[in-house]
């Protein structure tokens, strides 16, 4: 792992699929990709024909061995890389990736504790990688995911999450602007009451992974600490900037 990170690898876009009104899923073929753990990220480097380059980090939705890497990218209005990945890039196009990166915000199959995943917006990507890894493994630890989105159409992997049929894995939703019809809860940001209702209680001492925009992660992690979760049991990943 140490030596692999610094090397840029050529990635060829294998498939693109719309995911949300502003987001897209990309499958990349990356010969030489060393595999990655669920929760890790990678760097993407784009080079224009005149040599201009831009680099950004993206969470990986896939994990394990294999040379196909899945990304889910949300277009940032003021961005330069995300609009290219969401609007412009097509199958056959090439870019470079480096990774995997990060050894902290990861889940390992050998963990035998309850896990609570909490996502805001496109922060769900590394948590989807973790969810997929848990479902694909023999691991039967209780899992629960709370996913906060503006509206149902803004959810990445909505169909896949809705289709999870595992008695040990529950998905809860929170909507800030629009909810499906007959949604029983108020719209808005998560609150101490909603987090208490929709997550594994602190008494069960879950390991909690929180990923999303900085404001969301700050708010959620404060609520969790107030609900009695040990700060050391809360792993966070924040994103901001374009």
């Amino acid at each position: 792992m140490a030596s692999g990170v610094s090397r840029w690898l050529t990635a060829t876009v294998a498939r693109v699929a719309p995911a949300t009104p502003h987001g897209r899923i990309l499958l990349l073929d990356v010969p030489g990709w060393p595999g990655n753990r669920p929760g890790q990220h990678l760097d993407v480097r784009l080079t224009a024909e005149d040599g201009y380059q831009a680099e950004r980090s993206y969470s990986i939705a896939s994990s394990g061995d294999g040379e196909t890497v899945e990304l889910a990218v949300d277009e940032l209005p003021d961005g330069e890389v995300s609009p290219y990945l969401v609007e412009d890039v097509q199958p056959g196009d090439q870019l470079e990736v480096r990774g995997p990166i990060g050894a902290y915000f990861v889940w390992r199959e050998t963990q035998d504790e309850p896990v609570q995943l909490i996502a805001g917006g496109s922060g769900v990507v590394p948590l989807v990688a973790i969810a997929r890894a848990r479902l694909a493994s023999g691991n039967r630890s209780p899992f629960r995911m709370l996913y906060s989105v503006r509206s149902p159409e803004d959810a990445f992997y909505a169909a896949e999450l809705a289709a999870i049929d595992d008695p040990g894995f529950r998905v809860d939703w929170a909507y800030t602007r629009h909810a499906p019809e007959a949604w029983p809860h108020p719209l808005g940001r998560v609150t101490p009451e909603s987090v208490a209702r929709d997550t594994i209680p602190a008494a069960d001492d879950p390991l909690v992974y929180v990923c999303g925009p900085t404001g969301f992660v700050e708010a959620v992690s404060h609520i969790l600490v107030d609900l009695g979760h040990a700060p050391g049991r809360i792993k966070t990943e924040r994103f901001g900037g374009a």
Binding site: L46, E55, G79, V89
Partner: peptide, 22 residues
Amino acid sequence: VFSRGFGARRRESDPKLPPGQY
């Protein structure tokens, strides 16, 4: 490795910016 069609939107660059930063 060139990324076809990339580069239309560019960030301001500055000699005080280390490599790979924006």
